[in-house]
Structure formats: structure tokens, C-alpha cells
Design a protein around this nucleic acid. Structure first.
Lengths: 146, 146
DNA sequence: GGTGAAAGCATCTGGTG
DNA sequence: CACCAGATGCTTTCACC
């Protein structure tokens, strides 16, 4: 998929505001709205754009705590964990990584008690390390031309 | 801000597809489109919804590598780093955390060479630990009622 | 990539419980 | 106060160039 200047301008605008109308995008980058629609469709079909999402504040939604939890899975427990983790509502992001530890997760929690019960759910799968998030310094910054 | 059942249904739909029209949302949850528009506006004003974004595949955009980099800042280098990190295009997310290490970052990189030059940029600020992401098991899962 | 007509949508207004 | 219904102006969509 060729990402020319125009496509990158569209990606930039949609990353900044996914609900911007095609007409408005067209006005800003100097093409007609059908042309914008066509380009967006191709970007979606090529899976350059994988979806559009509203960013809901976990804090405003009742999650007072954010944490980074690292897991070092016990022998034979990595596969079961990878299946199970999808069902944990607390886990916003989960990465499988290289190194001594196998998993890094970003989790949201209601309070300390919730953190405690969540960690208890993990101990069957492996050793955990928990780091509480103090602030979110950079938040889903936009992908730029490589 | 009160998050009733209807508001949570709207949040769910917008998290799944931020470009869904108000009319379509209204059809699915059983209210009129002006009512949807009004509720969305209030959710935005209360900063429950903090924005709408297109998810662009880093891989399709030319970033072959993803990594989790942990930084333990040198004495007096945390503040300068927190200022500087916003300008690093490679950093998609950056958290300040509790514990021995001060910072966790999610970064996207073109290739190993790019990883090397990026780590070089960090060594003035502190000690780094790099973990290459093998797979993204859970990706920005939606926030659910707490 | 543009244009123009038809269908659909957002938004404003006024009105109801 | 939250919602609905109808009118108006944009927007999307589809034809075609």
C-alpha cells in the first residue's frame, strides 16, 4: 500500500479526530469528499487503518488506578495465560515480550483492593511485578511517516 | 457525571467504531439522533470521552519493530527527560511509574538500527532496559462499567 | 481525481411528559 | 431535564466524466 503525502495527511487528521467528516478532511487537504472516502476505504481495506475508537477516560469511568504489571510465567503456564488474558476486563493492553519476563500488561483498577484481587488471579500463572502508574506522560501519540 | 446504561451503550459503540453516525447509534440503543448527540456532547464536556482516534497499524506504516523500554533516570535527569520525551516520534506511550525504574515506554521503530540509535538518545537520561514486543495479545480493549 | 443529483445525516427549533 | 418530531443545511453515496 502506497502512503503518499495525501494519505498521510488523512491519517494525521483521523488520528487527531476520527469523527471528522470526509468533507472537512477534503477541505483541509484540498480534494473532494468522494476522493477522501475512496482513499479512506483503501486504507481500511489494506488494514493501514485498523479501526476507530473513542478514548474513554478510565478515571472518569471509575478506575482510580492504573498499573503496569510484568509477568514471568511458570513452566507451561504461558499458553493458558495468553488464552485467559483476553477475558480480563482490567487488561487494557497486553504484550508478549522477549527476555526473562514474558508478558507486560497495562491494567486499570478501581482501587487497591481491586489491584490485590487482580494480582491474586495472576499468581497461578507466574511471578508478577507491579508498578503503579503515576502519570501518563505520552498518550497514544500519532503514528507518523516512517 | 452519571454514567447510566444508555451512556455506557453509547461508550461501547463509540469505542468499537468512533465513526458510527449518531443516527445509527440511536437506532441500536432505541433513542433519537438528537438525543444521542446531546448525550455525546455531555460525555465530551465531562471529559469522559477525551477524543476519537483512528488506529493506524505501525507495521503497515513502516515500523517493523515494537519495544517496551524501561528507563531508570540518573539523578536530576527525570525532569529533562519528561520534557524531551514528548518530542520523540518513536514513543507511542510513556508512563511515569513507582519503583526503582521511573519510566516505561512503548516505542515503534523501523528496524534494529533505528532501535540502536533510539537507545543512544536515551543513555544521557538514564539506564535503559529494552524488551522487544513479540505480539500484541490485547490491543486497547474497551473500558467497561466499573 | 472531479461533478451533480438523490438519499441520509447533523443540528436547530419548538413542544411533550 | 431528557427526549421526540419536523425543518434546514451538510454530508455521503452513486452515477458518470
Amino acid at each position: 500500500m502506497s502512503l503518499d503525502t495525501l494519505n498521510w495527511k488523512i491519517l494525521k487528521l483521523l488520528q487527531q479526530d476520527a469523527r471528522m467528516s470526509n468533507a472537512e478532511i477534503g477541505r483541509r487537504i484540498g480534494i473532494s469528499s468522494p476522493a477522501v472516502a475512496e482513499r479512506i476505504k483503501k486504507l481500511e481495506d489494506a488494514e493501514v487503518i485498523q479501526g476507530y475508537t473513542a478514548y474513554v477516560s478510565p478515571f472518569k469511568a471509575g478506575y482510580q488506578l492504573k498499573a503496569i504489571i510484568t509477568l514471568r510465567a511458570f513452566m507451561g503456564m504461558l499458553k493458558p495465560f495468553l488464552e485467559k488474558v483476553k477475558s480480563f476486563d482490567e487488561v487494557v493492553n497486553c504484550y508478549r515480550i522477549t527476555g526473562n519476563e514474558n508478558i507486560v500488561m497495562e491494567v486499570v483498577l478501581k482501587n487497591q483492593k481491586h489491584l490485590e484481587t487482580f494480582i491474586d488471579k495472576l499468581i497461578t500463572y507466574g511471578e508478577t511485578k507491579t508498578q503503579i502508574v503515576l502519570s501518563h506522560v505520552v498518550k497514544d501519540s500519532e503514528i507518523k511517516p516512517a
